[in-house]
């Protein structure tokens, strides 16, 4: 034990020891309040993102071009709902209830990934969401499989396993358009033009500007920085775009031989701040829809509860 840890609260010393030794923190372990708050914020935000993310895709279920694309889209959206559930349950191990988390979302106190505040205007957007948005999410989530909070880490492992089909179906749908008629190819290019920059923003502010990053990295809640993950995403995605003849909408994009990575242009952080603080194209619509779905589903929950009471009464009799 170092001198520093000798003077520390022994519970804090034990906690820090676990972090240092790459051990996971489990729900019944003592943890600093700030750590608990930080994980809870990150997990609830992640859970809300999975659920809100169902909306831009849900927009195209009834208009999918073929029955096949429709069942694939349904299966994917169903997965996202399940991923939300995994994450809410993991967050509930910290003592917050689902109702509290949903209320915080409705009150505007909890955030979700800002990218879902963009509209899905054409069918090509659905391919783009799978290829780019899920692609970016996977880069982030693969890294989070090693996050220091046990339930979060296990949820990430489960989610990554299921998510791999999401990106592939998105790319495959995009490939079909890119190799189709001139109009179809133009539609794919237009969707890429609109989704590229918001996808890069998904990784959050630059490391030098990120509000929570430093502490999260120290606690190993985050294992790699925003900029490292963003670079990885760019490097893997550019060749995929080139392969199907689509152009990344960035005049500054260039392979940097020395770094062995792509240099890319400046991100419009004003847009990011606008969208994240509620002024994106669909913020109000996304939240209103979530509130409405919650309200309109109330009768189902009431009916299930009434049935349960009736069943209990019958069992007693």
């Amino acid at each position: 034990m170092t001198e520093k840890t000798a003077q520390m609260d022994p519970r804090l010393a034990a906690f820090e020891n676990k972090i240092t030794n790459d051990q996971r923190i489990e729900p019944k372990d003592w943890m600093p309040d700030a750590f608990r708050k930080n994980v809870l914020r990150q997990m609830s935000q992640h859970a809300h993102s999975e659920v809100i993310g169902m909306q831009p895709e849900g927009n195209w279920i009834t208009r999918a071009p073929t029955l096949y694309r429709k069942v694939v889209l349904l299966a994917k959206i169903q997965d996202e709902g399940g991923h939300g559930l995994y994450l809410y349950s993991a967050a509930e191990t910290l003592g917050s209830t689902r109702e509290e988390m949903v209320q915080a979302l409705h009150d505007g106190k909890a955030k979700y990934a800002s990218i879902f505040n963009y509209p899905s205007l054409t069918w090509a957007d659905i391919g783009m969401i799978g290829w780019l948005v899920d692609g970016a999410a996977i880069v982030n989530q693969v890294s989070l499989q090693r996050t220091s909070y046990g339930p979060y880490s296990r949820a990430m492992i489960r989610i990554c396993k299921e998510e791999s089909f999401h990106q592939r179906q998105g790319y495959e749908a995009t490939m079909v358009l890119a190799r189709g008629s001139a109009e179809q190819k133009a539609m794919a290019q237009d969707a890429l033009d609109r989704w590229w920059w918001p996808s890069l923003m998904m990784f959050g502010p630059h490391d030098s500007e990120s509000a929570h990053s430093g502490q999260s990295m120290k606690w190993k809640l985050k294992r790699e920085s925003n900029d490292v993950l963003r670079q990885r995403f760019v490097d893997q995605t550019v060749p995929q775009a080139e392969f199907i003849g689509l152009k990344i909408p960035d005049p500054d994009l260039k392979w940097n031989e020395e770094r062995g990575a792509y240099d890319f242009g400046a991100i419009d952080w004003d847009e990011f701040m606008q969208v994240i603080s509620g002024n994106g194209p669909c913020n109000r619509q996304r939240l209103q829809h979530h509130v409405r779905a919650q309200q309109e589903g109330q009768w189902v929950r009431d009916a299930m509860h009434a049935y349960e009471l009736k069943r209990q009464a019958r069992d007693v009799a």
Binding site: Y68, V71, V72, A75, D79, G135, S164, F165, Q167, R168, Q169, Y171, E172, M175, P239, Q240, F243, I244
Partner: peptide, 19 residues
């Protein structure tokens, strides 16, 4: 009968198959 729930269901050319 829902093979499309698996990543292996989507056949991609080998240049981009590492996804």
């Amino acid at each position: 009968d829902k093979p499309y729930r698996h990543a292996t269901h989507y056949k991609l050319p080998k240049e981009v198959d590492n996804m």
